[in-house]
Write a protein that binds this DNA or RNA. Structure first.
Lengths: 357, 357
DNA sequence: ATTAGCACTCTTACCTAAAGAGTGCTAATT
DNA sequence: AATTAGCACTCTTTAGGTAAGAGTGCTAAT
């Protein structure tokens, strides 16, 4: 048999072994491969091939005389080259879509709902990480007097995010004054990216006449207060669900692993860190980070499947699915991709609503 | 020796045993009690007393010829009668207080922060459950046009809660119209409990002249939409932190227990259920629910320490601390009580600000 | 190049024995 | 009558040792 044919068979056996291991969670023996896929070769032949695959670093034995499991490199090759993506069932698609639609335009809620439903359907831990806040564009700002020296600032952005900030002042502000500031801000800052607001305000300060000057000054006071209050510090929303799912996976019967993962899931900051690691500006297909490819040391036995969603072609958030490296990639990748697609659709429908206005 | 003296000694030994078990997490032997507390009696005498305590149901042996551990009944007696509450260290008090102050007037944030810091200091799992929303009083309502058929409703209550709801309409509403509705609502509904708003609106419908009639109709449309949207469905905020803390406790090395607890902690609904169970209208001191006293079957080896906080003498939320039944009650109770006290203070300061306005 | 056959390795489960902790009981002591 | 020393007994824990089972790697035959 020539080399190319031999390579083909090697691949086929690696694929079989990987999918068997994913399904059974136990090291795969040569005879199991023979039994499950009628390869018209003996187990001894398969064993010879397994030795080659092991030498190439795609598989390994937990101990001599046990079956074999894929290495990170093996999974990588399986995902990139061998695996066929499964189709998602229509009813599952509907559920995922519904999670977006039912809470469309309520950003905080959509983030919770989508990660919840994704966790349920995938049976892994799911994360939704929406990080566009500072990139998004101001649509409307509303100032509401709470008390003499307190103002509630409601920011509405083009992506439908609504945020409240309470700003405390040292001097009192009258309702009329507030009204004028708010009109001024809406007139001048509409469609300005949040990050640019301060700069634009200072430009306005230099450009306009005295009345405006005073207004802009007061407006600056508000945005200064927002910053001082560290309110732009965390400019993302993140939600996670389904750790209880991965607890049932045999790899997490080891309490140490479980503890490591739970530690990360308890902290929104660390979760955000990790998701950021797999960010890519152009994020069309799902991306997988396998085992030791993860920088985070608690995730060395886990894989993270991520897919980004966009507003007007700009990635503004990501879904993540975390499970053991032995994960049903052929199902998880399309799942996350579809979820991200739906999220993109929903968000862009909202943006379109804006423009129609 | 007479009966009363003997009872005193029994109590003293139960106390010693309980606190030893809380500290060491291992069944307590007669000789350990003798060694740790110089009782000027022999271990044999202590053993005789232990038998009596066992017959009374306060302690039990995991197996014959092991040391003894308190039963739920034993813990109950320890907490209600024997235990002396520890003083909280000043620096800890400061930390707890700071968590309230630093995010005062930002209800969602204060709930997150306080449960976080409480978990850290207690080294158990902490919960903050704020359930007053439907009881609280409308302070201000703001309507903001998002698009032709969408309105953002911002509700501000006397307890400083800010909530956003997006309401979708079938017909379009002009900005002017919206302004009028919002003025009408603020004039007529200020200081109305949220639960009574609908009734009050309908009363207004019958009372006023034609102009008002139309306005009230439109206002009703908004609140109808809010209800249809199931937005009053969950009228509480709840936040949990520190499950990783209890993972380090030896009783949770058993994965089954851990799983049961995690399952509950994953669901805000179930957490709320459980906290509700220990609600009391007049909630001054911390309350403990021990082991099987918990209705929730996953918590049969856990204790829940709760304390309520108030606005104007009405309980509006609770702190909870969850850990193994073998919990440092003498420290945890004062901790939760102090945290609740601080929360009460902070919330009432805010209410006072209102009235000054 | 493939395969049957088999010796070898490693894991797992199960058993046994020994050590250790702690009790309950009895009989002696205060 | 209460206390206690002493000791047999029970149960857990640890270690070691053996047998069964799974799966491999190698060799020699096809």
């Amino acid at each position: 048999m020539n080399v190319s044919a031999s390579n083909e068979r090697k691949s086929s056996i690696l694929e079989s072994l990987t999918s068997l291991y994913i399904n059974t969670a136990r090291p795969v023996s040569s005879s199991l491969i023979k039994d499950e896929f009628d390869l018209s070769v003996s187990s001894a032949t398969i064993r010879n091939i397994l030795v080659e695959l092991e030498e190439l670093g795609y598989i390994e034995q937990p101990h001599t005389s046990s079956g074999r499991i894929p290495t990170d490199k093996g999974y990588r090759f399986y995902i990139d080259t061998l695996m066929k993506k499964q189709n998602i069932r229509d009813e599952e698609k509907n559920e995922l879509k519904l999670a977006c639609l039912s809470s469309a335009h309520k950003t905080q809620e959509i983030i919770d709902k989508t990660s919840e439903i994704l966790a349920e359907i995938s049976n892994e831990a799911a994360i939704n990480f929406f990080f566009n806040l500072s990139d998004s564009v101001l649509k409307h700002i509303e100032l509401i007097n709470l008390s003499l020296m307190q103002v509630l600032v409601v920011l509405i952005t083009d992506s439908g995010i609504v945020r409240n900030y309470i700003v405390n002042f040292n001097e009192s502000i009258s309702t009329g004054e507030l009204k004028r500031i708010s009109n001024f801000l809406n007139e001048n800052l509409k469609n300005t990216p949040l990050v640019d607001i301060k700069t634009k305000l200072y430009t306005l300060l230099n450009e306009h006449n005295l009345v405006y000057l005073q207004l802009a000054h007061e407006a600056c006071r508000i945005f200064d207060a927002l910053e001082a209050d560290e309110l732009f510090e965390r400019d993302y929303d993140i939600h996670q669900d389904g750790i209880n799912n991965i607890m049932n996976q045999p790899e997490f019967f080891n309490l140490e692993y479980l503890k490591d993962v739970l530690d990360v899931f308890e902290s929104k900051e660390r979760l955000a860190e990790i998701l950021k690691d797999s960010f890519e500006p152009d994020f069309n297909n799902a991306k997988v980070t396998i085992g030791k490819e993860n920088r985070c040391k608690g995730f060395q036995n886990c894989s993270l499947v991520t897919a980004g969603y966009k507003i007007k072609d700009k990635t503004v958030g990501m879904f993540g699915l975390l499970g053991p490296t032995r994960m049903a990639y052929s199902r998880m990748l399309p799942l996350v991709e579809y979820m991200a697609e739906m999220m993109t659709e929903t968000l862009n429908d909202f943006s379109r609503d804006e423009r129609d206005e």
